[in-house]
Simulated scan of single mutants.
Amino acid sequence: MTDGEQLTIDDEIIARARIHAREVVAGTNLTLDLSALEWDVSARAKRRAGLCRWRADCEEATIVLARRAYERYEWPEFAGVVRHELVHAWEYQQFGESGHGPRFRERAADLNAPRHCRSFSEPRYVLRCLGSDCEWAAKRHQASKPVRAPDGYRCGVCGGEYEVEHVESGRTWSSASGYGGVKAALGDEW
């Protein structure tokens, strides 16, 4: 770093993650080649606190951490995300593949790494079953097909119809035309 350069939050995230990774590898029997591990930060991620990408051609893993998660979690929770992604990197280096199966769960338990992370952002949409005895709901951050055209889909539990709520406005719809109407009515507030 030259005079006048300042560290960014992304630099801080990567530095802390690298230090934590060295501590994890030194304090466990995790056979992970940290020199073949790259780090990056996503400013756009809204759902995933982290991910691990694998480039099989050069046998290199890249752990991408979400800036928003770092800003919203306390360090112990974010460190859990780092450990979770380290397990994925280990699996890629050792086996050329990774998932959340038994091998992952066993190694994650050894490292006290969570299997899933707590949501760190509010969803833009919520899908809710219209069945009187069903409490099924699903959160969405993007206008996927089930959000845009809910009449073509059914509840994940009882198979009944559901409606979609635009969380910020509270407006709901249960058809493709309803989606279009709400979107048009909200205009710039969409």
Score class of each variant (00 low, 15 high):
residue 42 S to W: 07
residue 53 R to K: 13
residue 32 L to A: 07
residue 33 D to Y: 01
residue 53 R to H: 11
residue 37 L to A: 02
residue 38 E to W: 10
residue 32 L to E: 00
residue 25 V to E: 01
residue 52 C to A: 04
residue 26 A to K: 15
residue 29 N to S: 12
residue 61 A to R: 03
residue 50 G to T: 03
residue 30 L to C: 13
residue 65 L to G: 08
residue 57 D to A: 08
residue 54 W to D: 01
residue 51 L to I: 08
residue 39 W to I: 00
residue 30 L to V: 06
residue 46 K to S: 06
residue 29 N to P: 11
residue 26 A to V: 02
residue 60 E to N: 07
residue 47 R to G: 09
residue 52 C to G: 06
residue 39 W to F: 10
residue 44 R to P: 04
residue 60 E to F: 00
residue 34 L to D: 04
residue 51 L to C: 07
residue 59 E to Y: 08
residue 60 E to A: 00
residue 35 S to K: 15
residue 27 G to W: 04
residue 32 L to W: 00
residue 38 E to Y: 10
residue 33 D to V: 00
residue 62 T to S: 13
residue 45 A to P: 11
residue 28 T to S: 15
residue 46 K to W: 03
residue 64 V to T: 07
residue 54 W to F: 07
residue 54 W to E: 03
residue 47 R to K: 15
residue 52 C to P: 10
residue 27 G to K: 14
residue 29 N to T: 14
residue 29 N to L: 05
residue 29 N to W: 13
residue 43 A to R: 15
residue 62 T to P: 08
residue 38 E to N: 15
residue 66 A to W: 01
residue 50 G to K: 13
residue 51 L to A: 10
residue 47 R to V: 05
residue 65 L to F: 00
residue 28 T to A: 05
residue 42 S to D: 13
residue 33 D to E: 13
residue 30 L to S: 06
residue 58 C to W: 10
residue 46 K to N: 07
residue 54 W to N: 04
residue 59 E to F: 05
residue 66 A to C: 09
residue 65 L to I: 01
residue 29 N to H: 15
residue 52 C to Y: 00
residue 58 C to E: 09
residue 36 A to D: 06
residue 54 W to P: 11
residue 33 D to K: 02
residue 40 D to P: 04
residue 45 A to F: 02
residue 61 A to S: 13
residue 26 A to S: 15
residue 44 R to Y: 03
residue 37 L to K: 12
residue 54 W to V: 00
residue 49 A to T: 13
residue 57 D to F: 07
residue 29 N to I: 10
residue 43 A to Y: 14
residue 50 G to R: 11
residue 35 S to A: 14
residue 45 A to G: 13
residue 42 S to A: 12
residue 56 A to C: 09
residue 34 L to N: 04
residue 60 E to L: 03
residue 47 R to T: 07
residue 42 S to G: 13
residue 31 T to W: 10
residue 47 R to F: 01
residue 58 C to V: 08
residue 25 V to Q: 01
residue 64 V to L: 09
residue 36 A to W: 08
residue 33 D to Q: 13
residue 52 C to T: 06
residue 47 R to A: 12
residue 33 D to A: 06
residue 34 L to E: 01
residue 51 L to Y: 06
residue 38 E to F: 04
residue 30 L to K: 05
residue 31 T to I: 11
residue 52 C to H: 02
residue 40 D to V: 12
residue 44 R to G: 02
residue 40 D to L: 14
residue 58 C to K: 11
residue 55 R to Y: 06
residue 52 C to N: 09
residue 61 A to I: 04
residue 34 L to F: 02
residue 57 D to Q: 09
residue 60 E to D: 07
residue 55 R to H: 08
residue 64 V to H: 08
residue 28 T to R: 15
residue 32 L to C: 03
residue 27 G to C: 09
residue 65 L to N: 06
residue 41 V to W: 00
residue 66 A to T: 10
residue 62 T to A: 14
residue 48 R to A: 01
residue 58 C to R: 11
residue 26 A to D: 12
residue 62 T to R: 14
residue 60 E to G: 03
residue 39 W to P: 07
residue 38 E to G: 03
residue 46 K to A: 02
residue 46 K to E: 02
residue 43 A to D: 15
residue 52 C to E: 05
residue 61 A to K: 02
residue 29 N to K: 14
residue 26 A to R: 08
residue 52 C to R: 04
residue 32 L to N: 03
residue 58 C to P: 01
residue 48 R to F: 09
